[in-house]
Simulated scan of single mutants.
Amino acid sequence: MSGLGEPFGLPALRAWAQRHARLGADAPEAAVPWAVAYSGGADSTALLLAAQALWPGRVQAFHVHHGLQAAADGFEAHARACCARWGIALHVAHVQACHSLGESPEDAARRARYRALADMARCHGAHWVLLGQHAQDQLETLLLALSRGAGLPGLAGMPEAMQRHGVAFGRPWLALDGQALRAHLDAHAVPYITDPTNADPRYTRNRIRAQVLPALQAAFPACLDTFARSARHAAQAQTLLHEVAVQDLATVGDPPRIRALQALSHARQANVLRHWLRQGWNASPSDAQLREALRQVAVCTTRGHRLHLKLAHGYVTRDGDALRYTPTPV
């Protein structure tokens, strides 16, 4: 890879590692702690080359074959050829990412991909799996969240580092310009593939990418930076809300006592109930469901007052002086 020049985004990757990746940096020399989720596209290609330059001989590539389109076999062949040329170990997982009734194909593919990447990380000793999302991807995520009326967790966008399925995932390039990334690869004739589904207007994210982002960047040239800053502010606020929820749940009890809940402000009641449901059952009630729950908690002032309502994938009921949540059997 010496003829490719300095890989794109190397300083940003190094800075990210200093902020987040102490585990991988401290791993034994014999280990291969870094893995890149390598689709063969431009973003993951650039990240793979930068990671190999920063940690030579300590990087492996993970490729997920989704089985959703005929071109997937060609994606895998491209990944194998490039990794062989660059001297990087490649591991491939084949998944069937078909979506169920009422489920987004994108969501189904995303879940299957993360699970496959986590399985490969555990199997091959990777301490971190790096993902190639960049500033445009973050902006698309924020616009999607706004279009859905998301709260702070959605408006915080994609985190730089997270745990999923017991494995650490990192996004070192959320502040980098994806257009500059592709221009760098093109200037150095680095091969990458373009997924034809990225131009399919049936997918909301593709419509945002093709129609909204160009207009937004033309009207507000600094939007990549300013939207990312707003996402960081939202993430900090969400962290504070989580800390408050942990403290409030310790006060009201688990399960929450109704009178203790009523002593909190309306906003803190909503915050602690969301936290209680999320940590116990991974349940996320709608705004309408949560508003009704708070209304019923407010009027629950007599011993005989009953409470029974739908929240997410289960029901909350009154059990003596406390709330009880029962998930609906699948």
Results as ranks from 00 to 15, higher is better:
117 L>E: 09
12 A>L: 05
88 I>D: 03
221 P>T: 08
14 R>I: 06
237 A>G: 07
205 R>C: 04
63 H>L: 14
311 L>G: 01
81 A>M: 12
195 D>E: 11
318 R>F: 00
304 G>L: 03
233 H>G: 13
266 H>D: 09
87 G>A: 04
202 R>I: 09
269 Q>H: 10
20 H>M: 06
122 R>I: 00
69 Q>V: 07
257 R>W: 01
117 L>R: 03
11 P>R: 14
283 A>K: 07
223 C>H: 02
61 A>S: 08
241 L>E: 01
36 V>C: 13
200 D>A: 11
228 A>F: 00
169 F>Q: 15
73 D>M: 01
193 I>V: 12
110 R>K: 15
68 L>A: 04
47 L>W: 11
226 T>W: 01
280 G>M: 10
162 M>L: 03
21 A>Q: 14
318 R>E: 05
120 M>W: 00
162 M>T: 02
199 A>T: 06
64 V>L: 13
175 A>I: 10
39 S>C: 08
171 R>N: 15
249 L>G: 05
49 L>T: 08
267 A>W: 00
275 H>K: 11
142 L>S: 13
93 A>H: 14
270 A>H: 00
110 R>V: 11
145 A>T: 14
186 D>V: 10
111 R>C: 12
325 Y>Q: 07
29 E>W: 04
105 P>A: 13
8 F>C: 05
319 D>E: 00
